[in-house]
Design a protein around this nucleic acid. Structure first.
Lengths: 345, 345
DNA sequence: GATCAAAATCGTAGCGCTATGATTGGCCAT
DNA sequence: ATGGCCAATCATAGCGCTACGATTTTGATC
């Protein structure tokens, strides 16, 4: 019972419901449905109603890949940070996501773990999505990364660092100024024997910049300034170790600045255990103003960056670009920082 | 000087370099390039070499949207968490991203801020990307969300909660058991007047579950158990407030469990300020084992969940599904938790 | 009732890639 | 030689959508 076998090219997929289905049900052309989805105001009220009814009824979910391919751009924004476990970047990512959601833009996330090669690979993967914008952390990137980004037409935004050559726009603040502010504050409080406690400064450029700014400003201001550091990621445990070490090496230290509040928290714990009076004997200044900083014993003086503002500004930039409002590139936005003077200094 | 104006349909985009360009330079057909990119072993060594040389030379970046559209699936995994500012979810997101990178899968991130409607919208947006998998937090979702996910063929993974009806697979642990473990520990330490300090429990189901488990186990174990709570997000500041309040309301309390380590940290600060001896007068148990927990004064006894294991297991599940190895659905993986007994209890 | 610009709608040609099935060439057994 | 088989390669037909340009409808004005 042999038959002539047809070979109708096998279909690949079948998205359950497509725009054409919606169009049929709403009695309009697919073009109109597409238009409605992109610019609702350009479609008559009656058609709008029919279309949105059809969408609801069919539970239609547009295929963004098809849309992106046709439109040569996607509703995705790629953000590449060292790590989202770091509260600073988590805050920025969170703020950006909240702001971008209104534009129906999605965040594609990547972690470099402070590795430039990793970053390069992530940038390559990010570009594969033809994102609406790409956000990187810091101003330091591999030559290949720069090459990849040199010719893109989308906004490239570097965040959390200012003060170096930037690819396109940059949003952040000057970390050396943070160190300078910390030193100035301690000197103003009458401290003359300063120590900077730092973690992971061989990888975290920005922590290093804060440290360098601190040292320079301290010495310029007539104070002695030393560094005690640890190669691992900042934590309270390391902060405690660093403080003990600092007091051992520099017994007459009277002012401490920390690369961030985790370190400062650990330093406060150590002072507590060692019976070192803060701020009488030792003034402590942190960086970050993390969730616990105001609640410490004593409440921690710290420098507060504006992680969420960075995220919001980045989102605004992207939004403006999308609306074609701002052709200006090479923007630099200084989000500044503020010193929160509390009882630890 | 008028001319006859032609109207050759305007081109939309022009990705600088496409797969066809690579194929031409390598002297093979586009199909072979595509094959090389997806299954390098199926292409002869000579062709492989020519192709990878061409890719390098042209700096070719594949267009994942075109690929995804053609293949009816994308290299994206959507993960939806309450907030990435929460260290627990940040850890999971980070671990997942690290594991997925090896598969060249990208994470698309969404934040619900503990809002089910927000989650629903995010799920809809996520599905628009035809992701390879979708990861949600917890087991509680709106009816519409469930409907959206009912008929998808990709893995749907619910994380950080076990013990309820699940959509597909679930990876996490039982939060009531965390509460039970905390109560059992305090009772074992001879405490009989217990208080649970909780934050944001009207929104954070899992904190509520820990609380409920705690209360029930405490009472079953013959101890008095009370709750003192605050509606805002957990922080050390609120922890300190809650502890003061707890001591005011229940002056003879001798054991404290906290909805997480931020609260516990604040409680320890408050004890320190109030001169309440820990653990002599008051034992304190936290949840989370955050970065500062081991460094506190005294080091904090806490229950450590396995946020990174959750992320790794989720990635493994997705990977298995992608390789077609595991058609099994409705998997449940209990990642457990461990009690870190330190000096605060 | 005719005219015309503006508003609304539509038809069509791809966007860049992958899956399918077909074809080619090389090698071995007959 | 001849055929058969496998590995390597290729040609083709879309995936679902958007942008463009064209067409139709509307409604205000003469």
């Amino acid at each position: 019972m042999e038959r002539i076998v047809r070979k109708p090219r096998n279909r690949r997929k079948m998205q359950s419901v497509t725009m054409t289905d919606v169009a049929e049900l709403a009695n309009v052309s697919p073009s109109t449905v597409s238009l409605f989805l992109r610019k609702p105001d350009a479609v008559s009220p009656s058609a709008s109603q029919a279309i949105s009814r059809a969408i609801d009824k069919l539970n239609y979910v547009p295929n963004l890949m098809a849309g992106g391919l046709a439109a040569a751009s996607s509703r995705a924004v790629s953000i590449i940070v060292p790590s989202v476990r770091n509260a600073f970047f988590a805050e920025t990512v969170s703020a950006m996501q909240a702001a971008l959601k209104k534009q129906r833009l999605q965040l594609i996330l990547g972690h470099t773990e402070y590795d430039e090669l990793e970053e390069e690979e992530l940038v390559r993967m990010a570009l594969s999505w033809a994102p609406a914008a790409i956000v990187l952390t810091g101003l330091s990137h591999s030559a290949s990364t720069r090459r990849l980004l040199a010719n893109v037409t989308i906004p490239v935004i570097e965040i959390w660092e200012l003060g170096g050559p930037q690819i396109d726009s940059a949003i952040g603040f000057h970390h050396d100024q943070v160190g300078i502010a910390a030193a100035a504050h301690l000197i103003q409080q009458g401290r003359r024997n300063l120590v900077f406690l730092g973690a992971r400064m061989h990888q975290d450029r920005r922590a290093k910049q804060r440290c360098d700014g601190f040292l320079q400003a301290a010495r310029t201001g007539g104070a002695a300034a030393q560094v005690v550091e640890h190669p691992d990621t900042a934590s309270a445990e390391i902060g405690a170790m660093l403080l003990s070490e600092a007091l051992r090496l520099y017994p007459n230290a009277d002012g401490i600045a920390c690369s961030n509040d985790h370190i400062a928290l650990g330093a406060l714990f150590a002072c507590n255990r060692l019976g070192v009076a803060v701020p009488e004997r030792l003034a402590v200044v942190g960086f970050g103003d993390l969730s616990f900083s105001a609640a410490c014993n004593p409440p921690l003086t710290t420098i507060r960056p504006s992680g969420d503002l960075i995220g919001r500004e980045a989102a605004r930039l992207i939004e403006d670009h999308l609306n074609g409002e701002k052709p200006e590139r090479q923007l630099t936005i200084d989000t500044r920082f503020t010193l929160q003077h509390r009882r630890s200094s």
